[in-house]
Amino acid sequence: MNIQSTDHIFTFSKEHRAIRSVPVGKEVTFHTLDAFSNQIVDETSTFDKIDMNAVNPATGPVFVDDAKPGDALKVEIVSIDLDSQGVMAVAPGLGVLGDQVDRFQSKLMDVRDDHVIFRMRFHFQCAKWLA
């Protein structure tokens, strides 16, 4: 079963309706967007064009059949597969480097064999995690 990246939310609330019902024990693949909802498409993208209400999307939610309020659910993450491209962005006043930059800058980077290619001679191994 696949949950597409077009099915996403930007807040967590019990008021969100599940986009799909999933049987207990069923393997589900979640397709996700990047932290900017794929709004940065090239290195000429500008900060004023980014909809900040559309950052940090979460794919879903799904309902697990037979789950009741208060139940604890055990989830096994089988794998995390990376896209072939990633994005990095800095802006004044935002994030760890926000006090060290004077303008918005973005960088698109290739991802190969679980490594980010920052520049041809700088490769960094990816730490796969969920946020």
Rank of each mutant, 00 (worst) to 15 (best):
P92S: 06
L73W: 06
V111N: 03
S79P: 03
V101A: 07
A54W: 02
R112E: 11
V101Y: 03
F63I: 09
D113P: 07
V111G: 06
V96A: 14
K68G: 08
D71V: 09
V41Y: 04
D66F: 08
G86T: 06
K68Y: 07
L73P: 08
Q100E: 14
P92N: 08
D113N: 15
F104A: 01
A67D: 06
V111T: 04
V87I: 06
L73Q: 03
D42V: 07
Q105S: 06
A91T: 07
G98F: 03
A58L: 12
S45I: 00
G86K: 00
D99Y: 00
V55T: 14
L97E: 14
F63P: 02
T46W: 04
D66T: 14
D102A: 04
T44W: 03
D113Q: 14
D42A: 05
T59G: 04
R103S: 15
F104S: 02
G60K: 02
L94M: 15
F47V: 00
D99W: 01
T44L: 10
E76W: 06
K74Y: 15
I40G: 01
K74M: 13
V75A: 09
V78W: 01
P61L: 07
P61V: 06
P92L: 05
D99S: 12
S84K: 13
G98P: 09
Q85G: 06
A54C: 15
I77S: 09
F47I: 04
D71I: 06
D83C: 11
D42N: 14
I77L: 11
K68R: 15
V78T: 13
H115Q: 12
L82D: 07
D81G: 12
E43K: 00
D83V: 05
G70Y: 04
G60P: 02
A58I: 12
D81H: 15
M52S: 11
T44Y: 10
K49T: 12
M109G: 01
V87Y: 00
I40T: 02
V64S: 03
A67I: 10
H115Y: 09
V75P: 00
